[in-house]
Every structure is written in C-alpha cells, then in structure tokens.
C-alpha cells in the first residue's frame, strides 16, 4: 500500500477542561506510544469526546498540555485525523470528492487509493445521501486515511451501526491500522469492541483515568475465554461492581 505512515507519540500532561464551572476533565495524564492502539471507555458524559477534541486541536485545554512527538499541540495538526460518531460527509460532494477533502493537497490518486482501501471504489460517483450508514462511515474512514494520518482519533464511530456491520468495520479498522502503523485512540462504550481492538484499555471516571489495562491477546483476536475474561474485567469496572484483586493481578 502506498499510504504509509508511522505513528505519532502522544503525551497528555495534566490536562484539565472546564466548561463554565463544570470541570469535565481533571489533570489527566496519558501516554500513547507510536503505533499503539488504545481504547477509551467510560460512561456517557464522562468527557471522552471532550478529550478527543482536545487531542485533535478542535478545543483548547483549560490547563495542562498535549504533546505530539514532544511538540505542544496548538490547534489542528496535519498528521492527526478524527473520525466522528456521525460520518459528517458533505452532502454537496460526491463520494470521491468527499474523500479528496482528506487528501493532502487534494491529491486525487490518494483519494482513490483510500477509497479502495475501504472497498468502496465502485461508489465513487454516488451522492452521500444514497449510501447506507455503514457505507457512509467507511467513506469517512477513507477520508481520514487519505491524509496518511500518524494519529487517528475515533469517537464512537461504529455505535450507530448494526451488529454485523460493526464487526466488519472493526476488522477493517484493525487491518488498516496493522498495515499502516499509525497510533489510534478509539472511544467506545462497547466493551467487546475495546477488547477486540485495543493494546490497552483506559477507563475514564469522574474526569480522570480510573484504570489502564493492557490487553496482551494475540491478533486477530478470537472471542474465546481470555477475550471474555477481559470483557468481564472492564465491564465490572464500568459498572463499579469492583474486583480490585483481579485488577491488580492483571496490571502488575
């Protein structure tokens, strides 16, 4: 594949974000190594999207700083791309032109290549309005990939899709990430999605990182008993059913 990139090294240092007097994120620290895939889980409204927007440079932290390869993020970064929960395709552009938005310098060949990567080259001339939800999200993924990102942020991009399409998309994302070696941060509320994709799973609670669990399962992952173990572990934490003994066993 011609679209190649090596992942960014991301450091989040003491980042806080407040809206008015609501403190959404509190002095949060996080590090993502180049090429690492991490998943962020947490209850709805706990600040996951807010964190991703800070990393994308769409918002500015109230305190602390975000570093990309050691340099402070200051607004939009050309190596960082984000996939939103809704595909956000431009209705007035055909599929290929939507993908071209993401290509650096509007490189058309790059756009076509990215479209092939998600397997939708035959939809190039369609209007977004005639596509299914899953196809739209794949086009949005192609748009993000067309820019050869070194850091890909995914904000619950699959949550509106049906179960089958979602699993297909998960496999597609994993395969592309594996080939291109960018760093990836996936926000999700689907615990099994997190276990299927992530090298590490981070749980956000009350605006801070509650736990950070590595998932050392071989890829591609099978949904076996190890998989189920990690699913239950994360779920128990999310539901605050609490199983401190087993956590310390895993994270040590």
């Amino acid at each position: 594949m011609g679209i190649k990139s090596i992942g960014s090294h991301l450091q989040v240092k003491g980042v806080g974000k407040r809206f008015g007097n609501v403190e959404v994120l509190k002095r949060l620290d996080l590090e993502i190594k180049p090429g690492e895939f991490i998943a962020i889980v947490g209850r709805s409204g706990c600040g996951k999207s807010t964190l991703l927007r800070l990393l994308a440079g769409l918002d500015v932290p109230t305190e602390g700083e975000v570093l990309l390869d050691g340099e402070r993020v200051n607004g939009i970064h050309p190596d960082t791309r984000i996939l939103f929960q809704d595909a956000r395709l431009l209705p007035w552009k055909r599929v290929i032109d939507n993908v071209q938005i993401g290509a650096r310098n509007g490189d058309k060949a790059r756009a076509e290549e990215a479209l092939r990567l998600v397997g939708l080259e035959h939809k190039a001339k369609e209007w977004p309005s005639v596509l299914s939800g899953g196809q739209r999200q794949r086009i949005a993924l192609a748009r993000a990939l067309a820019g050869s990102p070194r850091l890909l942020l995914l904000d619950e991009p699959l949550s509106a899709l049906d179960a089958l399409t979602r699993i297909e998309m998960q496999e597609l994302i994993e395969q592309i990430w594996w080939e291109q070696q960018f760093s990836a941060i996936l926000v999700t509320h689907d615990v099994s999605e997190a276990v299927a994709l992530a090298d590490r799973i981070v749980l956000i609670q009350n605006g801070a990182i509650a736990i950070d669990i590595p998932v050392p399962l071989p890829r591609p992952r099978e949904r076996n008993s190890d998989f189920a173990y990690y699913e239950k572990l994360i779920l128990d934490h999310l539901m605050e059913r609490g199983a401190p003994a087993s956590v310390s066993a895993v994270s040590s």
Partner: peptide, 19 residues
C-alpha cells in the same frame, strides 16, 4: 459539525468558504 470537518483537514479562509 461540517465546518469541523473542514478545520480538521486544514481548510481555512477562501478554501473554507468555497468548499
């Protein structure tokens, strides 16, 4: 939300207006 797509992909000024 669509404008954010433009910003994320580096669109500004006249290019943002046009596209």
């Amino acid at each position: 939300r669509l404008l954010e797509v433009g910003w994320v992909h580096g669109y500004q000024g006249w290019r943002l207006i046009r596209h």
